[in-house]
Amino acid sequence: MPESRLEYSAATNAGLKRDNNEDTYLCLPERGLWLVADGMGGHEAGEVASAIVRDTLLDQRHKTLTQAIQASHRAVLSAASHGEGAPGMGSTIVALRSQGQEYEVAWVGDSRAYLWTYTPDGGRLERLTRDHSYVQMLLASGAIGEDEVEGHPDKNIITQCLGSHELNQVQVDSVHGQWQRDQWILLCSDGLTDELDDRELARLLFTSRSPRSAVSRLLRAALRSGGRDNITLQLVQSPFSRPSAWHSLWQWVPHITGRRTADLALYGAALVSLLLVLYWVAR
């Protein structure tokens, strides 16, 4: 049976073009709950909306994930009507709930979840969510092809968000699955996926040794690619993945070349050199 708590790592960054960070995230491993929320509505209002979403889900302990997300939609609407934040503020959300060997991912907007499964031949990356966006509607209707999505000028126009005053209820989509060994689930705002395509995400995940190192590498890569928006991401590891002693040791080896053998050789050479220097000084 899987362990009750899952290993995870998370990070958020304002990016290189914005002064404020409207994203937020929540990690509650003791309750098997993680989320990423991407606020919108201008300076301060976006932060307020995403924080309301986070805090509302924190309070909805006995609700289903869909019910909790609907409650967060109502909470954002109520706050705006009472002068908290600003009219028109809103937020996306992507949330993961894990219980035993089962997991559920639910979302509204264009924040995404991916399932990464490690295999020796390069791994497998599967997008679990489907954006609530104008471009996704065009793709579904056949008006554009897959190759036109990433470069489309209206890529960031979303059709659903928490706090939309035009909707009494939002459309909360969800997927369910069973954890397998050597899997991670990635939750992220569009600040990550606007900078890194699925192929680059898969490459970086494959060459990472732990959720912590993967989060660090993904964030750095997104910033190097432009960092045009706030960037938030979380990686949650399957409860069936128990790191070996060698795996734990690998986490302490510095990432230099991105190749384990080369990194270990460089790290070993550095340690040997240090020991020789210490020996020479001690003589």
Rank of each mutant, 00 (worst) to 15 (best):
A79F: 04
V170D: 01
D190T: 06
P211A: 12
A10D: 11
R61D: 06
C188H: 10
T12D: 09
Q99T: 09
W246C: 00
S133E: 01
G191F: 01
D23T: 09
I93P: 00
H62Q: 13
S210C: 10
S141M: 12
P29A: 00
R5K: 14
H247D: 09
V281E: 14
L276C: 15
V277I: 15
C27K: 01
A79D: 01
A222N: 03
Q67D: 14
E30F: 04
H73P: 06
Q169W: 09
L115A: 06
Q251L: 11
L65R: 00
S9A: 15
G268L: 08
L35E: 01
S189W: 05
A14C: 13
T232E: 08
R181G: 05
W184I: 12
I69Y: 06
A202R: 11
D19Y: 09
N168T: 13
S174F: 09
I231M: 02
C27Q: 04
A140N: 14
S164D: 15
V108C: 00
I231D: 01
W250M: 12
L266I: 15
T64N: 02
I93Y: 01
T56L: 01
R209E: 10
D198T: 08
V277Y: 14
R130P: 00
G42D: 10
E126Q: 13
L205D: 07
L233Y: 13
G46E: 05
E84A: 02
G46A: 05
D194T: 11
L233S: 13
T193Y: 05
H43N: 12
D173Y: 05
W246G: 00
L186P: 08
Q183Y: 09
G109W: 00
L201I: 03
E104V: 06
L167C: 12
M89D: 06
G123H: 07
E7V: 08
E195G: 00
R212Y: 14
S9L: 08
S241R: 11
R283Y: 11
L271M: 12
R54M: 13
S141R: 15
G145M: 10
V253Q: 01
A75N: 04
V36E: 05
G268R: 03
R5V: 14
R199E: 15
D55M: 07
R54S: 07
K63C: 13
A143W: 09
I158T: 00
L96Q: 07
Y118I: 06
S133H: 02
Q60M: 13
K63R: 10
D19Q: 11
R259T: 07
L125C: 07
S111I: 03
A269D: 14
T257W: 05
A265Q: 15
E44S: 14
A106C: 10
T193M: 09
R259K: 14
Y114P: 08
A265K: 13
R199Y: 08
L204I: 15
D154L: 15
Q67A: 15
T129G: 04
